[in-house]
Design a protein around this nucleic acid. Sequence first.
DNA 1: GCGAAATGAATGAACGTTCATTCGTTTTCT
DNA 2: AGAAAACGAATGAACGTTCATTCATTTCGC
Lengths: 191, 191
Amino acid sequence: MQCLDKRTEIMTVAMELLAENGFHGVPMSMIAAKANVAVGTIYLYFAGKDELITELFQEVEKEIVATLREGFPTEGPMRERFLYLTGKILRFLVDNPLKFRYIEQFMNSPYGISMRRDRLLGKTVPNGIFMALFEEAIADHVVKDIPIIALFSLTIAPLIFLVRDHILGFVTLDEALIRQTTEACWDAIKR
Amino acid sequence: MQCLDKRTEIMTVAMELLAENGFHGVPMSMIAAKANVAVGTIYLYFAGKDELITELFQEVEKEIVATLREGFPTEGPMRERFLYLTGKILRFLVDNPLKFRYIEQFMNSPYGISMRRDRLLGKTVPNGIFMALFEEAIADHVVKDIPIIALFSLTIAPLIFLVRDHILGFVTLDEALIRQTTEACWDAIKR
DNA sequence: GCGAAATGAATGAACGTTCATTCGTTTTCT
DNA sequence: AGAAAACGAATGAACGTTCATTCATTTCGC
């Protein structure tokens, strides 16, 4: 076992445990045990629990941005591009429930709160694509004339709630429902 | 100083601290200090931290249900009744940011998760009014033919996100924007 | 009416547990 | 052998909870 193997293993295991049990429900010793590693070893790769948690988030964030950019049509009808993006993110979250739950944990923890604050003016990386799309849509007058952040809430919030309900088993997000709900989101914001 | 005074004071102070700092960011000693009470005194009125947290939530829940029922028109056009309810809940949350943040904390904690699970079949009290409205709307074919839980997400989720952004100062939820966004929510679900 | 006894609300030091982090030792690799 | 990596027992801080003690107020006996 070499350097990168252990580091990756720790991150994989930590993602699973933290997503399922919450940040406070997972002692470092638990991560160490499941990764077949000594507690001290984790501190060879991460400065502390905080850094481990933060780094895990940044990794997922990068992955989502990459997924969204991949194959995204920069031209064409606004509605199609919108449905492409929302469908893509919905599918990613449904296919990666662990990562979804991790993001939720993070966003609702002090880490996420302060991150949101820090990004008050700077652009949030994963939403950058959405924001750009909305700005274009506003300029073209194809969406309602309300603050861009409201457009964002009307779009993203239902998707997140739906994924949560899907993971909890309250609803099944198949392709048909994904289509219907993303179209409904468009109906909400279209002029 | 009598019985109810102290109990009320503890609950008021706990609501503030817990809403602002999160459940794990507030030791019992902090609540005691701010309530000008000894730590042990809290245990005279509450079995433990868990019970205090749960009771606080139930109190807010009751208040919201009462607010929603108050003046709610049981007859009339579906759209008007929908806008009445969504506007009412939006105003309540904007006017009570502390309670909003507390609810968020609770819902994203193990308490809230297991509560959601427990209510899988039973009706959630605060949403019972919404659910009844949706069922009627479905029967009347005035909303889209998608699972009721999806209708719910399309409606409630954006409102919650908007309130959060309002409290953080990203947007100002005045009467005009409340009107625009609740109407947008209706556009999302209407047939 | 008045002193003595009982009450129980309030207190906060002490306890036991949990957990992140450290560091002296051991193992592995070159 | 020497350096790098890994180990895990030990440490100490934080926190929820307990309980022996205090004391203002009420009740009782005369």
